[in-house]
Design a protein around this nucleic acid. Structure first.
Lengths: 221, 221
DNA sequence: CAGAAGTTTAGAACGCGTTCAAGCTATTGG
DNA sequence: CCAATAGCTTGAACGCGTTCTAAACTTCTG
């Protein structure tokens, strides 16, 4: 992507409009919650016609994804993660992500709802490539530290972790799991999957994490 | 649920209409695929007014869920699962389920799309309670055979497996994973999670399954 | 059998996401 | 510098799920 393009007047106007639309969408979600984001309201708030967001983004879902990718604090907070060992770091990052979501429910519920909207055939690219790289880095650290079995494919492992997190988020979005159970449920799943990919020496600590999460979830699943 | 109610004439008529609506919905999905199921078309097909499906079911989603729960062949085919050991049986059941889905894509894509529709706050009860009991039974068999670690909570383990399968199905619904990669992806996730919950003696075979699925998925995740 | 109670019906309407023909505007070639 | 052109914006419109009203119909009650 050649960023230093001349950026003609036309393109500049488009970029500006795009920015306005994203900002209007973010504000509307923040103010009115999930149901408050309608394309007509968004267009009015952004000061453009109803069709413009479709020209610039293609669909409501694409706009919401753009809003999600625009959240910068996320990555900043991730960068501050420090932990005793690489496995602990993974769980610390997971906790941070979930704290982000449950800390601003009306906002992230809307965002994730759009993520789960399967009406259009648009490919997902759900989250930032940077985010993927971050998680991939965490797994690579764990791998280098000998926490993971030598023959596991890190890309596949990452994918399974993300699949699980997505389902957990879905349950949160539809209200099947409350905010207090979200983190334990995700930790439990992560612990199980990582335990399945762990090297013999690291099975102990991961098993402990799995049991810990299991107890946090109590008897009733 | 007291099934042997007198079932007054009024209730009988409602039940009959319910049946007609479910059948019309199933046929419409089968014939026209995902986009072909509109409430107006459904009402016309079922020979009722547009408002009637709302009186009897409440929402389109509830109708689709009712269609899904009405699929009987599923359980019949599940009942025929035979395998050398309880763990193999789990994977055999998984294969059957996925074969069902990919074998009738337009039908089950529609059904699963409705499952992922989070617009209404309706609780899910996504799949048949009977289905849950079936999977629970499989896990209990594996547990009794000593395949699972003594301190795992079977309910939680089942939940994590279902969470993962739901995400995998979601990827299939939105087209991010093709029919040929669906089964390996699910098997890989199941193998990892079960491996995390396995007893020491059963780690070998499960590890083999995980690696097998990993190779089936090829280098690109 | 007559009235009460409950359902379905037709029809219109609402707000939604999305699309399209028509008009406006910045760019470009002479 | 201006006219032709390509591209963007616009308001109107479509089909959707859903709700509502009033009238017609069916079932239950006494």
């Amino acid at each position: 992507m050649p960023s230093p393009e001349p950026l003609s007047r036309r393109e500049a106007g488009k970029a500006e409009r795009r920015r306005q639309i994203i900002r209007a969408a973010r504000d509307l979600i923040r103010e009115t919650g999930n149901a408050g984001l309608s394309m007509r309201g968004l267009a009015a708030r952004a000061g453009v016609s109803l069709a413009t967001p479709y020209n610039l983004f293609g669909s409501k879902r694409a706009i919401v994804v753009a809003v999600l990718q625009d959240v910068r604090e996320f990555q900043e907070r991730f960068a501050t993660v420090r932990a005793a060992d690489p496995v602990e770091k993974i769980f610390a990052a997971l906790d941070i992500a979930i704290a982000f979501y449950v800390g601003d429910p009306s906002f992230y519920r809307t965002l994730w709802s759009a993520v789960f909207d399967a009406t259009d055939g648009v490919r997902n690219e759900i989250l930032n490539p940077k985010r993927d790289a971050f998680w991939r880095g965490l797994l690579e650290d764990a791998f280098r530290a000998g926490a993971l079995s030598a023959d596991v494919d890190l890309g596949l492992l990452l994918r399974q972790l993300e699949l699980l997190l997505r389902s957990v988020m879905f349950e949160w979005v539809v209200g099947e799991v409350g905010p207090e159970r979200l983190a334990p449920l995700a930790r439990h799943g992560y612990a199980l999957i990582l335990l399945g990919a762990a090297s013999a020496e690291w099975r102990g600590p991961l098993k402990a994490r799995a049991m810990e999460a299991q107890q946090a979830l109590g008897v009733a699943g």
